[in-house]
Nucleic acid binder design. Structure first.
Lengths: 111, 111
DNA sequence: CAGCACACCTTGACATCCTAGGCATCCCTT
DNA sequence: AAGGGATGCCTAGGATGTCAAGGTGTGCTG
């Protein structure tokens, strides 16, 4: 089983992406994947095996809440909504991301 | 043992930082930590327990070579030099990083 | 009715990172 | 002279997050 080294997105960024996607309005898991894919201009592809554990994790931390509903096509799906705590977590992660991007930019511009 | 959630830098960025630091000239492990710290404007702090395994990994992949030398203060230290393969790996990782930063920026600007 | 998209979930493997140690040398201060 | 701190290397163990690969079921469409 040759493990191709993957790492599409870096560890730690997924929570931020999910929170961002959900912050635009309640959404179910499958839709979150699509929304992130679309928002990123088809650059980011979140795997289901990454998403569902992440959603569980995030819900445990109180950043989102979930409830089963029926979507517009008549299928049942678990809709996630962002909480107040989730919104501030999103802010914090975005700020942290900005700091990291800045720091790495500094390293890269060094001669 | 309460594990404080850390994750100073994201997984996957360390190799790039090390390669960048070494690309400016041969350097030993301890110095790499200091150089990254300094280049980042004191924002990034690489732990020794992260660095040395990473260096071993990177050397195995042929991206750096090492040899014991004596530095200007008379201490023996293992100096790492970047290889041709390491240089192109650095380029690839920087390009990949740019793509990720761009993709996440797109997600974040979505309304 | 076969196949695909939708929608959920779990398991196991894996890489990477951090904490927390250990070891040795040199220099500075007390 | 002793002690501590900085320099310099390393390892072991555990925590985490992601991915590949599987499984389940429903509804639509050709």
């Amino acid at each position: 089983m040759k493990r191709e080294k993957k790492a599409d997105l870096l560890q730690g960024t997924l929570d931020m992406l999910i929170l961002k996607a959900v912050s635009l309005g309640p959404l179910h898991g499958y839709g979150i994947i699509q929304r992130i894919h679309q928002m990123s201009g088809e650059m980011l592809q979140v795997e289901q095996g990454s998403l569902y554990p992440a959603l569980y994790r995030i819900e445990q931390k109180g950043w989102v809440t979930s409830q089963w509903e029926v979507n517009e096509t008549g299928r049942r799906a678990k809709f996630y909504s962002i909480t107040r705590a989730g919104a501030s977590q999103l802010e914090a992660e975005e700020a942290s991301w900005d700091r990291l991007v800045l720091a790495i930019a500094k390293v890269r511009q060094a001669t």
